[in-house]
């Protein structure tokens, strides 16, 4: 379960990035976080990854307060999450296989386990035939599918996706959206999907949390993109 309670955050003395945000996400939910650029979507995601702190309010992740998490506890917290970004954030010096394997290695998984599991996940995202390729040799859609395989490999309970389709064309975007939906249905992974893509939001009938200038202006099941 993810819980934001009256969370505010201001960068410098400008308008608030988040303004008294309260939000509860149950296990297994698929939640779209929508709003224009600058609305505060990434700030919410970053509070969950521990990259940002709150000015006011508290954030819980699986019943644990994480808004004041200590740097030395960050790695263990992040190992429970899957993260996907607009710019993929793949390790450029590693092949597709090694990028996914890396996420298992930092958990101290054995070589045998890694060899068994990584090909399976590459297969799930349709990247089996690119296992030995480096990110520079992949298309945007392939990079994002690889990033999703890496995010899922340790079977996290929550997947955070910050504009994962932002750099992709329509066709590849739908590919990714369908993959995220499938993951949510079949693996029962909670998915928090930040986007400002109107078509996608309107087509998939999931819970939509709308942000504007750091405020939640609407939160509805089977919602539409209204801004």
């Amino acid at each position: 379960m993810i819980l934001f309670k009256n969370v505010s955050r201001e960068y410098g003395d400008h308008n608030p990035a988040l303004d008294n945000v309260s939000l509860k996400i149950e296990d297994g939910e698929f939640v779209m976080l929508v709003g224009q650029s600058g609305a505060g979507k990434s700030t919410i995601i970053k509070m969950l990854t521990g990259e940002e702190k709150t000015d006011q309010g508290v954030v819980y992740f699986q019943n644990r307060r994480i808004d004041r998490i200590k740097p030395r506890n960050l790695p263990d917290h992040r190992k429970q999450l899957g993260v996907v970004f607009q710019d993929f954030k793949l390790l450029s010096q590693k092949t597709a296989y090694e990028n996914v394997a890396f996420a298992m290695e930092i958990l101290g998984r054995s070589h045998k386990e890694i060899k068994r599991k990584v090909p399976r996940f590459l297969n799930i995202v349709g990247m089996s035939n690119k296992a030995k390729k480096f990110p520079a040799q992949m298309s945007g859609g392939e990079k994002q599918r690889l990033a999703i395989a890496r995010a899922l490999i340790n079977e996290p309970s929550v997947l955070l996706a910050d504009e994962p389709t932002g750099n992709l064309d329509v066709f590849n975007s739908w590919d990714i959206v369908n993959l995220l939906l499938k993951i949510n249905e079949q693996l029962e992974t909670t998915v928090l999907f930040a986007t400002h893509n109107k078509e996608i939001v309107n087509s998939i009938n999931k819970r939509v949390v709308s942000l504007d200038k750091g405020k939640i202006i609407r939160d509805s099941m089977e919602g539409k993109y209204i801004i």
Binding site: L74, P75, D76, R78, L91, S92, A103, I106
Partner: peptide, 16 residues
């Protein structure tokens, strides 16, 4: 530095 940031985001510890 980008590689390092990415490793941090997927949960690698400083020593790793």
């Amino acid at each position: 530095r980008n590689e390092i940031e990415i490793m941090r985001l997927v949960g690698a510890s400083n020593m790793q």
